[in-house]
Design a protein around this nucleic acid. Sequence first.
DNA 1: AATAGGAGTAAACGTTTATTGACTTGGGGA
DNA 2: TCCCCAAGTCAATAAACGTTTACTCCTATT
Lengths: 205, 205
Amino acid sequence: MTVAKARPANRREQILREATIMFTAHGYDGMSIRGIAKCCGITESAIYRHFNNKEDLYESVIKRKAGQHDIKGTLAKNEGLDSIEDVLTFIAQDILDLASKNTQLMHLMFRSSFQSGPTALQLFMEIRLPYIEFLARELEFREKSGELQKVDPFTSSCCFVGMVMDCALNTGVWTTLTNQKFEAENVICNNVPIFVRGLMKSVVS
Amino acid sequence: MTVAKARPANRREQILREATIMFTAHGYDGMSIRGIAKCCGITESAIYRHFNNKEDLYESVIKRKAGQHDIKGTLAKNEGLDSIEDVLTFIAQDILDLASKNTQLMHLMFRSSFQSGPTALQLFMEIRLPYIEFLARELEFREKSGELQKVDPFTSSCCFVGMVMDCALNTGVWTTLTNQKFEAENVICNNVPIFVRGLMKSVVS
DNA sequence: AATAGGAGTAAACGTTTATTGACTTGGGGA
DNA sequence: TCCCCAAGTCAATAAACGTTTACTCCTATT
């Protein structure tokens, strides 16, 4: 009496989608093969036709997400911006856009960084690192050209990107925790200028 | 033949200690009653003499950690610092100190914020929020007195604290990921001045 | 038309999970 | 001295876990 169900075009993709949802919501130990199977409307065994084991499935989830965004590529297209203000605004805007359109990605990045294994830092490397390296290069160049104060490009870049990432991750928290409004645009309007004034040599207030 | 083991002064505290280690390392689902019991040298049932269930134990872990640090209190003792530079330096130093002396706390804070339930944001509220409110008040005061540029105190404070927290959490990551050095002192030497210059009205470069 | 194999099923595997129950200590107060 | 009770033990529970097995479709290729 075993009746085969309808087979969607690519089951593998569906499983990965559901597993991603599960993992972002409950973490590795909280995502169960059973639960994912149920969400897909198939049995657990069917999942093992597509993935060797749970760890394999997990790694595939991370790799898939990493493959969905080519940060390095999009950044490369935006080299040569005029002022440092443009650069910082662009980066902040880009990260906050990415985060708001793709909440999953951010949570996945932080969750996976707590996980052990080979894919622990993959999302950090493919999402966060490109931003940092991009900004660090811009800072280094502009520092040498005399536009900026004497600062350590890498540290400054890490901090700026970290600040924006932190905002992106916690926008929801602050609005529920306090009654203050705390939105992406405010961060850009408010803090990019602070950084700009702090970085530039001559200041026009 | 059931022999009762030696009973340490406060077993409860020992259980909480081991559970904290387990939770910071493996998360809620990854921390097992069995594992904790084994670490304490007792049986699982013994744990249920001290806690109603796993969730109760978990909540106790969070509450205990929250009770170990009186951020609000220590901040209150440091009101009335001279310059905004002193304020920012103090905050950054304090957070990075706290983080380096108590790595657990930071990881616990982020892990718990991903968890659902009543204690989800407790550590955020008792650790992070006091810093933000403290700095926001300082900024608001100094803005009104004309010392600072026109900025939104809350947003600026959120961002600064977020930046430092992010640094504290990821210092380890960057040093292993890149060969660049990225340490607490560098962050303070480098980024506090940037913020100061960015916030102040008149700049002495 | 025959067939090979990809993709599904039901059922069971052994293990681990959180939790409970019944029993046993040992030390402090009556 | 007796006895109570907090804090242990051992043993058992049902449920959930990841994984494997044996079997069955459906479909594309030959």
